[in-house]
Nucleic acid binder design. Structure first.
Lengths: 143, 143
DNA sequence: GGTAAAGTGGGGAAAAGTGGAGAATACTCC
DNA sequence: GGAGTATTCTCCACTTTTCCCCACTTTACC
């Protein structure tokens, strides 16, 4: 269960420390990949496997299936923590997420989002200004 | 589990290094063949066996099945890595994939695609512009 | 305020990627 | 059929990059 936001430095080698609170749940391995709205996603391995099982089972021949496979897997990266609890952010993913020297790790219960800090602040502002708008959305979701 | 993209050189002898992360899963042997969209495919032997069983079970009469058979089997080549972790790309396959001096190996979970780098970049651009199309796909799959 | 844990930076060792040389095989031409 | 030539394959060695560990600094918690 990942909760809360943590801002950590990305060092010159592209390493990022996982918040101590998150480490136990990622000890079994994790997959790092591109998310929506230019953020990155970190999935614990069991969650990832469950997510991708259906995609891998799709036809080799079907064009949509081929493209979907490429979208999901081509920029993903399996990572393990070093003894200091850090992972390596591959350069292509750092670029995809617009990350330079700082990263914001946001726990979203089952997985983690990684944001460039200023980009995250924009999202938060949107949350505040559009707050009322979400009432309707959430009702639709049954919450 | 093959994940991520790696660009490697093809040397004058037509040899291509397999990314270190992929080697363990290919140690039991692999089959190299033509894929769709002018890329090449590398299958681990167990996956290949399963695939051939399914394709061979298809009707002799069905035209699509005939074409699929020709694509997969006619230019297939069983390969083993040398001690440096490289395989030889036969010339006919290099031509089929439009490969010259660089190759992009893309891990797609159960198998690997091999692309000419500029051709792969086109595919990536298409992926980005067609984003919304895939939202629907993923929703159907429960992702 | 002290202690312990977390976060950060740097250095060294190991492995990955690449080019090339030598040996073995096949091939051709005399 | 044999010798010379070309080609393929395997192994070796160098260079670069990556990974891992150690140590210091900072923060949090008791």
């Amino acid at each position: 269960m990942f909760l809360g936001s943590y801002e950590h430095a990305i060092d010159e080698k592209g390493r990022l420390a996982i918040p101590a609170r998150f480490r136990a749940d990622l000890a079994g391995g994790m997959v790092l990949t591109r998310g929506f709205d230019r953020c990155l996603l970190i999935f614990p391995l069991p969650y990832w496997s469950d997510l991708t099982r259906r995609v891998s089972a799709l036809s080799l021949v079907d064009e949509d299936a081929r493209m979907l496979r490429r979208l999901l897997f081509a920029s993903a990266s399996e990572q393990e923590m070093d003894r200091q609890g850090r992972i390596l952010l591959p350069q292509n993913l750092r670029e995809a997420g617009g990350l330079t020297d700082q990263a914001l790790l946001v726990g979203l219960d089952a997985f983690i989002e990684v944001w460039a800090p200023d980009r995250w602040r924009e999202v938060q502002q949107r949350l505040e200004t559009q707050g009322p708008h979400f009432d309707e959305q959430m009702r639709k979701l049954g919450i």
